[in-house]
């Protein structure tokens, strides 16, 4: 793989992380707002609210995994133990 190829892969990794991070942030903003709103009236919803709030974290986790696998395609990175 040439430098250009490696660069493209690195860019893809960055894009993957940016996309999934923004998606997670947006989703958490919405859910977090709703959770806080509900909790303001019913504090006993804390547990449920927390669970709902963190669900979108899966998105960036997938982004992380995909990014990690993509990184493996770059020979220079793969060479590092």
């Amino acid at each position: 793989m040439g430098d250009l190829g490696a660069g493209m892969v690195a860019l893809s990794v960055a894009l993957t992380l940016i996309g999934t991070a923004v998606a997670t942030a947006w989703a958490q903003k919405v859910i977090g707002g709703a959770a806080i709103g509900a909790m303001a009236e019913k504090p006993e919803l804390f547990g449920r609210g927390l669970v709902l709030m963190v669900i979108p974290e899966t998105i960036i986790l997938f982004g992380f995994v995909i990014g990690f696998l993509l990184l493996g395609l770059i020979p220079q990175v793969a060479a590092v133990p």
Partner: peptide, 8 residues
């Protein structure tokens, strides 16, 4: 926020 809160 508002809808969740009024629903609560």
């Amino acid at each position: 926020y508002v809808t969740a809160r009024v629903k609560a």
